[in-house]
Nucleic acid binder design. Structure first.
Lengths: 146, 146
DNA sequence: CTAAGTGCAAATCATTTGCAACCAG
DNA sequence: CTGGTTGCAAATGATTTGCACTTAG
């Protein structure tokens, strides 16, 4: 390496933090610039490509077509909050057995899958309930009562 | 109505047929033009918007960010074939009970969801198996064809 | 006539690429 | 020195919008 890739490093750190789960290119750019890093889309874009190739981050796509990036991690699904517009991670929703069953039933081969739930993230859900309490007693979220 | 919307009608018919399950704007444009209809992206785009507003069709987005359209119908999921690049409909993969369970477990509210399976559609799966049978004994002609 | 529907051209948006300057190794 | 990085500017690709024209009702 001829130089320590400042931008790639900055992106990696940003995605590793928990300010957000996933970031669009614009959000990454804004965050870096606000943080005092002089950069632009092309640098971020190319650094992201490299990070993806290295397997350090992953690219997702929002329903509106924009791309966003998340830190590489074990497979999980996402919920796109209609209120705050953030993407939050959700444990995988489809059990492997279900996928196998679908393959058999539909006659397809499934190599991967992506699930996007649309709704309210935990934070916005709570906020919504405060603004407009449920007519019925709202449930209390307690430890996984599976 | 001042005029019978030719383009909207053409789109509706196209999506109602079974040549494809979902069409990109470009595919719609190409198909209409090939069929002798003089039109362009903006007309198709606006007619689509109207059809969406009317609830006649739905807009989806591919992983690469392009939009595509399908006839409105009961909820179902999709498989994006990595071979022929088509989107095929798959009966919904996530049972309602599972969604409710996720809402409770993750503390979110789910208003809708979209699942995209990535893999081979029935046609391409069969084609793939012909090219390379899974049966151990019939292991033949690998390589050869380029 | 009169406005919804349409086509062409131009504007946007979100990337993506060309290229010359830079600089850590 | 040198090649991987980076920033600026320009190019793309896919929509989306401005506007004048057309024509069914």
């Amino acid at each position: 390496m001829a130089r320590t890739p400042r931008i790639a490093t900055a992106i990696t750190e940003l995605l590793a933090g928990n300010e957000r789960h996933a970031w669009t290119l614009e959000e990454i750019r804004d965050s870096l610039v606000r943080g005092g890093t002089k950069t632009d889309f092309s640098s971020i874009f190319r650094a992201s490509e490299k990070l993806i190739a290295d397997g350090a981050i992953k690219k997702l796509s929002l329903e509106d077509g924009r791309a966003c990036f998340e830190q590489a991690a074990a497979h999980h699904d996402h919920l796109h909050c209609t209120d705050c517009d953030r993407l939050v991670a959700i444990p995988c929703v489809i059990p492997r057995k279900a996928l196998t069953a679908i393959e058999a039933r539909a006659g397809v081969t499934i190599s991967e899958h992506q699930v996007t739930l649309i709704g309210l993230c935990p934070t916005c859900r709570i906020a919504a309930e405060k603004r407009q309490p449920r007519t019925t007693r709202s449930r209390v979220r307690r430890g996984a009562s599976s």
